[in-house]
Design a protein around this nucleic acid. Structure first.
Lengths: 259, 259
DNA sequence: TCCTGTTGTCGTACGTTGTACGGAGTAACA
DNA sequence: TGTTACTCCGTACAACGTACGACAACAGGA
């Protein structure tokens, strides 16, 4: 591990030109002399995505990817400068999967975009760990998505700046809600324990230390929520509720602008 | 690394009783025979928090924590069953720092709660990486926070379930927005490169591959946003904007309920 | 006071990680 | 037929979490 990079396992700290060339698949032309390449960046990234989908981000090691492709570990470094850049490529590839249908009203359009994002995160839970909102990898697919999201709120009375803010806010919210929703599923796979089993293990222990008289509100609301969801929390319900409130807020903004 | 746990570096997969006892500091009484303990869980966690604050989550290793305390690495394992449980304790301790002032209106109260959370994440950026919304460590401080958040929206016309949903939604949004806001600062520390420098390195490369005619909306809005924020994005502005929309949405819900 | 059992301390070792380095082999151009 | 550019990859290193077990320190019972 030559250089540490704190808790970010993603790229942007290598050569910017090399990173961009990798994402946009440019600058691979001047080949002539040596042996033909036996791999491509896309083949490597596809294998890596498959691995991360199936076994989680922690299982995504260069050794495992190489094994999956039947090559030596270090061969990967002929095509990809480091793991961080590989993850950037994986990220942009998956961004290309997000394809919400168009709809007539801005509200439906944003709902469909939110839903499409959520579904993608569900298929590739590691995306949520890997996403960087500041300094994102500027790949072709994430840029195309930015444009598509903006067009969903174009011509409805918002300023350019407000369009940008609405799109950013929606992205932030969906990521947060998806994190909660996805976590349940992936922790079940990682621990072999369902949410209900987890709660049944912890609830009696909590009862021993939790004083309902000290926190009557939490006790009452927690009990109601627990009964309703048959668990501590229902992520799907939470996602819909939050999205509805958020879009109501956008609606109020539009009403204000047009009034 | 005896057991892998995918991309979760936090606890809950060990003995539940031990985890809870650690968080609530119970069950440490029956000491008598051997030598006096030279450390406490709190001293260890405090050192770990200091380290994670200063150098990031990646620098948080058992070796480094032990070094900071002047003990052998393995001595830590007398007090803490594993790193995951230590992180849980760190999490709950920091939860105890979140102390928003009370206010007269529910809107102000939620704003102050959101702001207090954001400030805490700013002081301890690793919290965002470590937080698990599903199966959270059920420590005393996070439970107290849940109660406090609920009381902020009590008696304003919402059902118990809606109170729970509003609090959850706020938490999700603040986490997401904070992630964006915090990332900028921590990537600057990790890479030694400011956001502006990053953008100046990538912008010319992006211009070479980005076709404004293909994505006119992104080109126009991106330019306006870039000029306004003097960067790709202003996290503080984004936080305020999103929070305002979200609270507008809650306001609409309350109006509906009381109408 | 000495023995005994309990507890805290921690050195060593193992399996994992990302990747720097350099050598070996291959294919096209001079 | 070199020469040269290129792919392939074995080896090595530092750092990680932690299982294991030897050792030391102390309190209670004899």
């Amino acid at each position: 591990m030559a250089k540490k990079s704190a808790d970010k396992h993603y790229g942007g700290r290598g050569d910017p030109a090399r990173s961009m060339a990798l994402l946009w698949r440019t600058g691979t032309e001047p080949r002539g002399r040596g042996p033909k390449p036996g791999l491509t960046v896309d083949r490597i990234a596809a294998a890596a995505i498959e691995l991360a989908d199936a076994e989680g981000l922690a299982a995504l090691s260069m050794r495992r990817v190489a094994e999956k492709l039947g090559v030596g570990t270090m061969s990967l470094y002929t095509y990809v400068p480091a793991k961080a850049e590989l993850v950037d490529v994986m990220f942009d590839l998956v961004c290309g999967e997000i394809a919400p249908p168009w709809a007539d009203t801005w509200r439906e359009r944003l709902e469909l975009i939110a839903r499409a994002n959520l579904e993608t995160y569900r298929r590739h839970p590691w995306m949520l760990t890997v996403m960087a909102n500041s300094r994102p990898p500027l790949g072709p697919n994430s840029i195309a998505n930015y444009d598509r999201d903006l067009r969903a709120v174009e011509g409805i009375g918002l300023s350019d700046l407000e369009m940008d803010s609405v799109v950013a806010m929606l992205g932030v919210y969906v990521q947060g809600a998806a994190r909660t929703a996805i976590e349940a599923a992936s922790s079940e796979r990682d621990t072999g324990q369902s949410d209900l089993e987890w709660w049944e293990a912890y609830a009696p222990l909590l009862e021993k230390v939790f004083d309902p008289e000290k926190y009557p509100t939490a006790a009452r609301v927690g009990a109601v929520a627990g009964e309703t969801y048959e668990s501590a929390y229902d992520p799907e319900q939470g996602f819909r509720f939050g999205l509805a409130r958020l879009l109501d807020g956008v609606e109020a903004l539009i009403r204000n602008r047009n009034a």
